[in-house]
Design a protein around this nucleic acid. Structure first.
Length: 530
RNA sequence: CGGGGUGUAGCUCAGCUUGGUAGAGUGCUUCGUUCGGGACGAAGAGGCCGCAGGUUCAAAUCCUGUCACCCCGACCA
């Protein structure tokens, strides 16, 4: 991946030499491990580190959500094979389960989504996403329709979509001069401005020229859809490369009928593009588009010769585009309709296979002294991003597990942060109303009792008005606040204090209860499964 | 790199179109009254209006240049 290097920070030293700041460490760890293992008996092995990573982000934003410097835990495992004990599959499953426990205990709502193993190689990949409107990744799920499918846009499959290549034309073909408009949007703007007719991207066919193993591949999707290269690769079971940029301009005027009379072109059409009705597409001529394109008329004829593959029904209709909201969900995953949600990626597990070990020449000797290339998995957690995600997360979001009644996982409201307990800087804040009478003594004793019970306690002994302290406690999001005041302590039936949970479990005004019950009530609130 | 925006009191900003030597809120200082959900009154301190030129009797305001910051976009294991 070229981006692995373009996004690496490479400063120049005063001596004119280049130094690279660590990005991710598949190569480094693989190379390191290669020097440590000799025999099949040395595997499996797992290495991890928690350290600062650097990445030359195009556009850092949202504070700690996307930054050039961040904290990351990354783990790499090495195996002799895929199956059985000690294999990559088993390690992957255990790592997956461990990640679920990590995010459970952090108290952030998350969803595990299927991700594209992609051109980097490997066979399986899952992302751990925290749902949030601030998120930069899009997740597609069918949970609203009762299914259990979740995947990112690159990976998401759609259920069956009907297609019909034999619909009747909507009119005679008409070539339109569209100077300087290779792109879909350009053409639509041109139609409106210069021809006074409204043309929508969904009425256009986007034809992408790709190089396959055995000749050219034309990938055709609707103008408002995006080609998914991984899906195209699977549909052709071949390696696929988009035509290079030098050809890109003229490629913008290509239409599917360029395949006519040629046998070295394979046409692959997304179902939504393989329809009758009104189409505008490239005219196979620079600066020209054609109206009323029709699949049957343009590719077949009476002699059944124009595009032989069409007539042999060898033209492929396949899901080759990114899924979008509203698509049917895969039927074997519960069916229904896909809906889109924004999410923040906080973790990723990945079966890399032999991609790195093979290219770096790492091998061990097997039982028969043969050379074996280990398989590899990698597993990452964006440590500081969890903090941001915990605050940005949508309160009450569903997660992958059964959403238990009353389970609450933090986030924020108009008053500030609502920390899940595991991430909060303190468990309890004690807010004295005014340091008079025995308030100070009670407060100190209570703090000591709470600390003995295992909690981290913050005492707000600032000389501020009560309202100020309440607002600040809410703002920094300490999970439980205990208010100690002279009025409560001198109640006729014995001293009382107020206990309030930041997440609202104790209501907007909290609970007033006898001082003696404070520690046990706080314990209840803090040990509730979050 | 492309597009847009903003630089005025410690902070958040108004004023600029229609030039006339600077305002609000908040914060700060002092005094008094208050004190269970960001108190109230009174008095006060605080700004070469990002920087450099130009136009003008006169520039925060108009013109040119420059610097800085912010936002949006560039398909991101």
């Amino acid at each position: 991946m070229p981006t692995r290097w373009t996004q690496t920070l490479i400063p120049t030293t005063r001596h004119g030499r280049h130094q690279a700041l660590g990005r991710t460490h598949e190569e480094v760890v693989t190379d390191l491990l290669g020097g440590c293992v000799e025999s099949y008996k040395d595997l499996p092995k797992t290495a991890y580190q928690i350290q600062t990573k650097f990445r030359d982000e195009f556009r850092p934003r949202f504070g700690v959500l996307r930054s050039r410097e961040f904290y990351m835990k990354d783990t790499y495992s090495f195996h002799l094979g895929m199956d059985g004990p000690g294999g990559l599959d088993a390690a992957y499953d255990r790592m997956y389960a461990a990640y679920c426990r990590v995010f459970d205990r952090c108290g952030v709502p998350y969803r595990v989504v299927e991700a594209e193993a992609g051109p980097i190689g490997g066979s399986a990949s899952h992302e751990f996403m925290v749902p949030s409107p601030t998120g930069e990744d899009t997740i597609l799920t069918n949970s609203a329709s009762g299914g259990g499918y979740a995947a990112n846009v690159e990976k998401a499959e759609t259920g069956p979509r009907p297609s019909d290549l034999h619909g009747e034309p909507t009119g005679d073909p008409e070539t339109v001069h569209t100077p300087g408009c290779p792109g879909i949007d350009d053409v639509c703007v041109f139609f409106k401005k210069n021809l006074g007719s409204k043309l929508l991207p969904k009425n256009m066919l986007k034809t992408l020229v790709c190089k396959g193993d055995a000749g050219w591949i034309l990938a055709v999707v609707r103008g408002d859809h995006e080609l998914n290269e991984a899906k195209l690769r699977r549909a052709t079971s071949a390696s696929v490369a988009l035509a290079d940029e030098a050809d890109a301009r003229d490629a913008g005027f290509v239409g599917p009928h360029v395949a006519v009379d040629r046998d070295d072109i394979t046409v692959i059409v997304d179902p939504d593009a393989a329809q009758g009705g009104f189409w505008v597409t490239g005219a196979n001529e620079s600066d020209r588009h054609v109206k009323h394109f029709n699949w049957k008329r343009e590719l077949a004829d009476e002699d059944q010769r124009r595009y032989a593959k069409f007539n042999r029904q060898a033209i492929h209709v396949a899901d080759i585009r990114n899924a979008v909201e509203g698509d049917p969900a895969p039927t074997d995953k519960g069916g229904g309709t896909l809906e889109a949600t924004k999410g923040i990626e906080v973790g990723h597990v990945f079966k890399l296979g032999d991609k790195y070990t093979r290219s770096l020449g790492v091998a061990v000797r097997g039982e028969n002294n043969e050379a074996l290339t280990p398989l590899m998995g990698c597993y990452g957690i964006g440590v500081n991003r969890i903090l941001a995600a915990a605050i940005e997360s949508t309160p009450g979001s569903q997660d992958n597990n059964d959403s238990a009644e009353g389970r609450f996982r933090g986030g924020h409201d108009d008053d500030g942060i609502i920390w899940p307990r595991a991430l909060a800087p303190f468990d309890v804040v004690i807010t004295p109303i005014k340091l008079q009478g025995n308030v100070a003594d009670t407060m100190t004793t209570l703090a000591a009792d709470l600390e003995s019970a295992g909690f981290e306690v913050l005492i707000d002994d600032r000389d501020e008005r009560p309202g100020v302290k309440f607002k600040d406690a809410d703002l920094i999001g300490v999970p439980v606040r205990v208010t100690v005041g002279d009025k409560g302590l001198s109640a006729p039936d014995g001293p009382r204090v107020e206990v309030k949970a930041r997440d609202g479990r104790t209501g907007p005004k909290g609970e007033t209860l006898p001082l003696a019950q404070a520690v046990s009530r706080v314990t209840d609130l803090l040990s509730a499964k979050i």
